Simulated scan of single mutants.
Amino acid sequence: MNSYINKAKTLEPLNPNKSTGIFGGRSSGILNWNDIAYPHWHKMYKRLVGNYWQADEINMHSDTKEFPFLSNEEREAYLKIIGLLSTLDGPQTRTALLLSLYATDPSVQSIMAVIAQQEAVHNESYSYVLSSVVSLDEQNESFQLGRKDPILLKRNEELINQYNQFVEEATIENILKTLVYTSLLEGLFFYSGFAFFYNLARNNKMVGTSTMISYINRDELEHGRFISELFRATLDENPDLNTKELVTWVYEHFQKSVDLEIEWSKYVLGDVEGIDLEEMEGYIKYRANKMLRMMGLNDIYPDNIENPMKWIRAYVDNVDGTKTDFFEQRSRQYTKTSDLNGFDDL
């Protein structure tokens, strides 16, 4: 029986400090990082905190000058993809906080708090980059896409349904399914958009925006790593939910998400020079396989085990820890410029 669970109490001194369960367990609410149920999660917390950055520390001056000279197709894709990213990261802030409210392991509460804060920074960064290149009216139009664009609405429908289902029915099964969609969001749904900005950068266009995206990408890789581990640990603690039905549900929703992401990439990148849509499709399937393996499941696309777009690796820290930051090889200016680019006028 998959019964409802209550939100974790803030402080329960009669319970042990080390949690007896991630969700639905018992803990005092007192966090001693040297005495937690999953000790290696302290390293994850440290990595997340070490990624701290702020949007207005990235110089957008060159992007401001370059944006009008992009092709019409590039400008349209730029605005649509920023609209997509903001549609995903805004709700993700709230979902991370909501998951933390039900977590009875205080280490998970702390990690999810950091993730929520980083998602809030990501969402601010989209406002920041748009304020650097377009008018307020155009900014607002881009942020309306998540509510109005039919392809984007179709693409996000299952994600929205599952997140809202968790809000309405707080069960461990819905937590597991929400973690699946969080994993998809962090590890798959962003990547056609990331590829667009990296493609601009490898053609020496909009390097400030791509620098920003590389930091967001690095954060999302760490988020995806933790969410995958959280899924596995929660499933291990609740073996009655480790059923054929749940595993089938995961595979079906991964396949559905891949199909929708491919459809979206063709819609938003189809006319953009330098993006090979066949490669993009292979990359999306490669990312799906990788996320499934991280969650302890099997590949579903046996022909897409290798990354067909290896040039992307030069633009962001790798989830396995191999740092190959392309931008360190260039004379990028990493300075605070919020008082110069009009962001404070929003």
Rank of each mutant, 00 (worst) to 15 (best):
N140T: 00
R232A: 05
D271K: 05
G224Q: 15
L179A: 03
E138R: 04
V247R: 06
R232C: 08
F143E: 11
T178F: 02
N156C: 05
M212I: 15
N238D: 15
N140C: 02
P150I: 10
E261L: 01
G146T: 13
G208M: 09
S142A: 15
S142K: 11
S192F: 14
A201G: 12
T211C: 06
N204W: 02
Q165D: 08
L230Y: 11
T182L: 13
Y251E: 14
L159C: 03
W249D: 02
T243C: 07
T209R: 11
K244F: 06
H253G: 01
G187V: 07
M212Y: 04
D259N: 14
H223K: 14
K266W: 04
R155H: 08
V250H: 02
V207W: 03
L145T: 00
M212W: 05
G208F: 04
V272H: 02
L246T: 04
D236A: 15
N161G: 01
E273G: 02
Y191K: 06
N199R: 11
L179V: 01
F143W: 09
A201P: 06
G208I: 09
E237A: 12
E138V: 01
L200Q: 06
E237C: 09
H253Y: 07
Q165I: 00
T182A: 12
G187A: 10
L159D: 03
I160R: 08
T243Q: 04
G187W: 12
E252D: 15
R202G: 03
D271I: 00
F190A: 05
K205N: 05
N203T: 13
E263H: 04
F194N: 12
E220Q: 13
V268R: 03
V167K: 08
L260A: 14
K177N: 02
G208R: 04
G193V: 15
W249N: 01
I213Q: 11
L269I: 08
L246S: 05
F166S: 07
L221G: 15
W249Q: 01
V272M: 09
E169R: 04
F197V: 13
L188S: 04
L200P: 02
I175E: 04
V250Y: 11
D276Q: 10
I262D: 01
K148Y: 04
I216N: 11
E157T: 00
F143P: 09
N242K: 15
S214G: 07
F231M: 13
K205Q: 11
R202F: 10
Y215C: 05
A195F: 07
F226H: 10
V247C: 03
L230W: 12
V167D: 09
I160W: 07
Y163G: 00
N238W: 13
S228V: 04
Q255C: 13
N217Y: 13
A170D: 09
F196R: 12
Q162E: 07
K244H: 12
Y181L: 10
T182S: 11
